[in-house]
Amino acid sequence: MAMNGPTATERFVNGILPENPVYRQLLGLCPTLAVTAAMKPALTMAGAVLFVLVCANVLVSLIRGLLKPHLRILVFTLTIATFVTIADRLLAAYLYSMSKALGPYVPLIIVNCIIISRCEICSSKQGVVTAIADAFGVAFGYALALLSIATVREILGRGTWLDIPVMPLTQGDYGWSVMILSPGAFLVMGLLLGLWNWVEKRRARGRLGASAPGA
C-alpha cells in the first residue's frame, strides 16, 4: 500500500466482495448480528454506516497532509464520533421509530473497526476521489452482508421479508422465534460464513483446474 495504491475503481470493487468487511475481514460484528433480526433496521443501519464512512473518509482524506503520525488515531476518533452523533440525531429527527429500534447500536458505530480501518488504510494515504469510491465500496459490502443475514433471519424467523409475508400456507401466522433471538444471529452468521468460504474454495479450485492443463 504505497503512496499510489489501488485506484478508485479497484477500491470500490474490492470493498464489495474480495475484501468484504464482514465475511472476509470479520470487522464490525456487533451491529451485524444485533440489527439483522429484520430487514428494515438492517437497511437503516447500512445507511447510517454509509453516511459516517463517506463523511469520515472525505474529511480525513482532505486533511491527510496535516496529520501528525502519533495524533492520527485521535483525529480519526474525533471525526468519526462527530459524524456518528450527527447521524444519530438525524435518525432521531426523521426516522424516530427506527432510531428507537436500533437503540445503542447507532452510537456503537463509533467503535466499529470498519470505519477506523478505512481511515487508516485508505483515506489517510490517498486522494478524495479514491476515498469516496472506497467508502462506497466498503459500505456496499457491509450492506450486502447485513442484508443477506437479515434476509435469512426475517424469512425464517417471521415469515416476512421487508414486512411482506412470504411464507406460503401459513396465513401470516408463523414464527420461529429462535431465528429472531440472539442464538439465531450467531447460527445464521456461522453458516453463512461457512457457505462463503465454501464458494470461495470452489472458485479457487475451479481457477486452478482451468489453468493447470495449460501450464
Binding site: 440472539s182 442464538p183 450467531f186 447460527l187 456461522g190 453458516l191 461457512g194 465454501w198 474454495k201
Partner: peptide, 23 residues
C-alpha cells in the same frame, strides 16, 4: 471440522448454542 467451517465459522455456531443455553 468440515473445512469451510474452520476458524470463525465454527466459533459462531458454538456461540449460538451457548447463547441458547444462556437463554
Amino acid at each position: 471440522i468440515p473445512e469451510p467451517m474452520r476458524g470463525p465459522g465454527i466459533v459462531f455456531i458454538v456461540a449460538g448454542i451457548l447463547a441458547l443455553a444462556f437463554m
